[in-house]
């Protein structure tokens, strides 16, 4: 326990885990990992069928959601808990743009991201005056309030009846199956992954990490702390909006129930259990935990118990996440 009143939800300055330090070198292993990911994504549709591709689409949506949350929590250290709300904005925006105006999906995807991002900047500008637990709670309240709006704004969102989403289209092409949606989803995911890597390695990413490690030190170095935080929050909302739009390309129906705090928490656990502060952790956490909850769907009654136990055990024995854990163990084996 730290003796300062560094709140639980903030990065404390004391003992930052090793993986949190900035990296500037492009290691072959890292490029190999990226190449492998790309290869798996390309060859997947040739070897599997319908249901598996649906799962793959869903996992990729979670990957993008995790990348967004990674930017604001992992890189900038701000515990914002309204991710599902922005995801919802993305789904409804692109669903409505498709339903009402028949927009082609790349445009509605961009629109979804931009609207979510804009709302994120506005909310961020207010909420990021606060820190630690207060920031977490303010964004939590915003998320709950927005879910209420989704549930009660009948004319636009369909309210408790949910909203039917018409198939995504581009010119004469209509996306009617998971298989058709997959390339769109996969390419978008890769683009978002590349964007994340670029941001993380840019001046912006460095300023994010500086804010995470110490706001005072960052300020002293001339980093506009407030702007960095709001930018990170806006970017994370943009990612969530795009993820929502990706979801809208392969699903036909959305209900506000799936846009509440539970979803935010699911994404948060993916990011933390994957490994807070690393892109590989965010992606890996999304894939591994997305798969686990999907497998557990076969045994619904035990699903929650097992999922909860996994979280607890991870926090007890692999505190820095799945990938740091594997890394440590593998390192020990190689060193003998």
């Amino acid at each position: 326990m730290s003796d300062k009143a560094a709140a639980m939800l903030s990065r404390s300055e004391a003992s930052p885990p090793a993986r949190w330090t900035a990296r500037s070198n492009v290691s072959p292993a890292r490029i190999g990992l990226l190449a492998l990911t790309t290869a798996v994504l390309i060859f997947l549709p040739f070897v599997v069928t319908g249901y598996v591709l649906y799962i793959a689409n869903l996992l990729l949506v979670f990957v993008v959601l995790c990348l967004g949350l990674h930017l604001v929590i992992g890189e900038t250290g701000q515990f914002a808990l309204a991710h599902a709300a922005f995801y919802g904005i993305g789904i409804y925006t692109s669903g409505l743009a498709g339903n009402a105006f028949g927009w082609p999906f790349p445009m509605s995807m961009l629109l979804a991201g931009l609207i979510a991002g804009a709302v994120g900047v506005v909310i961020g500008a207010v909420a990021l005056c606060m820190r630690d637990i207060y920031l977490a709670l303010a964004t939590f309240a915003f998320g709950e309030a927005l879910q209420w709006v989704f549930l009660n704004w009948d004319k636009v969102t369909g309210g408790p009846n949910g909203l039917r989403i018409s198939p995504a289209r581009l010119g004469t092409l209509e996306i009617l199956s998971d298989k058709q949606a997959y390339p769109v989803v996969a390419i978008t995911t890769l683009l978002m992954l590349l964007l994340t890597i670029l941001i993380s390695r840019s001046r912006l990413g460095r300023s994010f990490r500086a804010v995470r490690e110490s706001e005072v030190a960052a300020m002293a170095m001339g980093i506009p702390v407030r702007r960095a935080k709001v930018t990170a929050f806006g970017l994370s909302a943009f990612y969530a909006g795009v993820a929502g739009s990706m979801f809208a390309t392969f699903s036909t129906y959305i209900h506000p129930d799936s846009l509440g705090f539970q979803t935010t928490i699911l994404v948060l656990t993916m990011v933390v259990v994957g490994g807070l502060g690393s892109i590989a952790g965010a992606v890996g956490g999304a894939v591994v935990f997305g798969l686990i909850s999907e497998f557990l769907r076969q045994t619904p009654s035990y699903q929650e118990i097992i999922y909860g136990l996994i979280l607890i055990v991870f926090m007890m024995y692999a505190p820095r996440g799945l990938f740091a854990f594997i890394h440590d163990k593998a390192g020990r084996v190689f060193r003998g």
């Binding site: 730290s2 939800l9 990065r11 909860g308 136990l309 926090m315």
Partner: peptide, 24 residues
Amino acid sequence: VARANGSPVNLVIATLGLSYVLRG
């Protein structure tokens, strides 16, 4: 969890884990 010395948010995730277990 506290002894494992990860990020402070880990304790929060552990309480979330308990909430899933109890509900399940």
